Computed example of a mutant assay.
Amino acid sequence: MEETPPCPECGGRTRLRKGDYGSFYSCRRYPDCKGRVDAGGKKKRRQRGKGKAAAKR
């Protein structure tokens, strides 16, 4: 099993998750505990005015 950092809120185990703004470790006890740790992965930034709606303007 992969080593993961402990939850900063409760000290429990975490799991690697992927979100819109990069990877992070979240507590396995979610939603009872909302602790999270940044995984240090690449972060995507959404750019305004670059999508299909902007092309119609």
Rank of each mutant, 00 (worst) to 15 (best):
K56R: 14
R28C: 13
F24Q: 09
G35V: 03
C27T: 03
P8W: 06
A39H: 03
M1A: 06
T4A: 14
Q47E: 11
P31A: 13
T4N: 07
S23E: 15
G49P: 06
A55M: 07
R15E: 11
G49H: 10
T4Y: 11
S23N: 14
S26A: 15
R15S: 14
R46C: 00
C10I: 08
K56L: 05
G12N: 12
R28A: 12
D20F: 07
A39W: 01
Q47N: 02
T4P: 00
A39Q: 02
D20M: 09
C33W: 11
P6V: 06
E9C: 04
C10M: 05
E9A: 08
D38T: 10
A53I: 06
K50S: 11
K34N: 10
G11K: 08
L16P: 02
R15I: 12
P6S: 05
C10G: 07
K34F: 03
P6L: 07
T4F: 08
G12D: 12
R15T: 12
A54Q: 13
G51Q: 02
Y21C: 02
G19N: 13
K50A: 10
G51D: 14
L16T: 02
D32E: 15
G51W: 04
G51R: 11
R46P: 00
R36P: 00
P8G: 01
S26M: 09
T4M: 00
Y30L: 04
K18F: 13
R46G: 09
G35H: 02
P6F: 02
C27G: 04
C33D: 09
E3S: 10
G19L: 07
V37S: 01
G11A: 07
K18C: 03
P31Q: 15
A53S: 08
Y21H: 14
D38P: 13
A54D: 07
M1D: 08
K50L: 13
D38Y: 09
K56I: 05
G49E: 08
R17G: 05
A54C: 08
E2G: 00
D38Q: 12
K42Q: 14
D20A: 13
